[in-house]
Design a binder for these strands. Structure first.
Length: 420
RNA sequence: CAGGGUGUGGCGCAGUUGGUAGCGCGCAGCGUUCGGGACGCUGAGGUCGGAGGUUCAAGUCCUCUCACCCUGACCA
């Protein structure tokens, strides 16, 4: 990817109509474009980040037997009437419209009912279970008020997974596998150390659900961190914090640490409640009809992107963890002499064909300061400089985004370092 | 939804007691520069969010309306 060909541009000034750090920086650096309040488009740069996050999630979901699919955004009324959730009094964030002939349609704010309806057609026997399906889907929610940039929009991308199990044991196995898979996801995304499996309000079948909360000043939730008797850190959402919860979890109120956090994932055990509501059954070995055990598992893909910006950004701009960065290297060419241009082009090709993703600043008109500032603002993990100076020494200069000092190394050393 | 704030070239802003709009950045051209957002000259670009109204005259005053931001409420 060449900077000269990016249609987005960085800006020297922050957008005036955003106050959240994530939206300000993502807009300033050209990752997202604001369409309206709570609605953002993702530019080629932003899309790369989004796809990187999705790919990590995808790999981990596939590893626990998740099967990817994609549902529709348009949903029919009857899908939701069975569970009473078509009603605006029950779900107040519906976007709804009508077909030309007057038929009601809703825009998917969730796909629980829709997926179950589909699964009912295919799952009829114990031999069909378990099945775990997931999708990356744009959720549309008519929130009263959008805020915090891409951390809470009216349109956002979510990975939602649903498990269909034969019984509680099978369900619990997958549920726990999913907790571990989620931990791996957040580790790979670079926020594992600050992300806690948090006890939150459960439903009819469980005392708690589990949320994945990332410590983040811009978050909307408050969680409490404490150590249980085994010395293990336990996180509890404020919404369920009472004496009974503390006793159940073996925590002491006076030892808790209160932090702001953002909910980046949520997993939920429905038991058979939802299948009873929707009459989702299968036939067991004895020929008896039984309700399917259901679970749902979400990861806020766009929200995670916002959280990463919020957590790692510094005074110079965004700092992407390598795994999600739109490119690993910001190749900065200083100077326009034929020799430097040729050397930079060669290096660009060599890095790219070596599997290193490169954002190549090939602009003739931009001076050094501007290129450096853009590299920092965009948050690319490594900046590699090639110039008359480096060529005279027969070296290249490499600097990590988070470091203040640059290193001068040879071209083979560079290739070795980045390929590793 | 309640309360508060803001809408003026692409972006960030100024605009006095009403007199038909300026600045910085960016953009285009030319020249000088060239390792942390350079400098000079020239130039393009605005029905002042929208609709009514008051007035000889409205960016400025009045009414309505739309959008954006903040706080709260809401967030299965």
């Amino acid at each position: 990817m060449r900077v000269s060909q990016l249609f987005t541009k960085t800006s020297k000034t922050l957008p005036a109509d955003e106050t959240s750090k994530n939206a300000q920086l993502l807009i300033q650096a050209g990752y997202i474009y604001k369409v309206m309040a709570g609605v953002y488009a993702f530019t080629p740069l932003g899309l790369r980040v989004l796809e990187n996050i999705k790919q990590i999630v995808r790999e981990e979901m596939n590893a626990i037997s998740g099967q990817e699919l994609i549902m529709s955004s348009l949903q029919k009324r009857s899908t939701w009437e069975e569970t009473g959730r078509w009603d605006d009094e029950v779900v107040d964030i519906w976007f709804k419209s009508k077909l030309k002939d007057g038929t009601d349609v809703g825009f998917g704010w969730s796909h629980e009912e829709a997926i179950i309806e589909m699964m009912k057609q295919y799952i009829t026997s114990y031999k069909d279970l378990p099945v775990n399906v997931y999708q990356f889907q744009t959720k549309l929610r008519n929130e009263l008020r959008a805020k915090a940039g891409i951390m809470r929009g009216r349109e956002f991308v979510m990975k939602d997974m649903y498990s269909c199990s034969i019984n509680a044991e099978q369900h619990d196995k997958f549920y726990n596998d999913c907790i571990e898979a989620y931990k791996r996801v957040y580790d790979r995304l670079g926020i594992g150390d600050d992300t806690y499996v948090t006890f939150a309000s459960g439903g009819a079948f469980t005392q708690f659900s589990h949320e994945f909360q990332t410590v983040c000043e811009a978050g909307e939730d408050i969680i409490y961190l404490g150590k249980n008797k085994e010395g293990k850190t336990v996180a509890v959402n404020e919404e369920v914090l009472d004496d009974k919860t503390l006793a159940d979890l073996g925590l002491k109120r006076e030892e808790l640490e209160k932090v702001k956090s953002a909910e980046v994932g949520n997993i939920f055990n429905f038991g058979t409640q939802k299948s009873e509501d929707t009459d989702f059954t299968f036939t067991n070995e004895k020929g008896e009809r039984q309700f399917v055990h259901l679970g749902s598992y979400g990861i806020g893909v766009t929200r995670v992107m916002g959280v990463i910006v919020e957590k790692f950004a510094d005074e110079k701009g965004i700092v992407w963890p390598e795994a999600v960065a739109p490119a690993t290297v910001y190749l900065t060419r200083l100077g326009t002499t034929p020799e430097v241009v040729q050397a930079a082009e060669d290096l660009y090709k060599e890095l790219t064909s070596g599997g290193v993703s490169v954002l190549y600043d090939d602009r003739d008109e931009a001076r050094a300061g501007e290129k450096f500032a853009d590299a920092d603002l965009m948050g690319i993990p490594y900046r590699v400089v090639i110039s008359d100076k480096t060529m005279a020494n027969n070296t290249l200069e490499i600097k990590a985004r988070t470091s203040d000092t640059a290193e001068h190394i040879s071209r083979p050393e560079l290739m070795q370092k980045l390929a590793a």
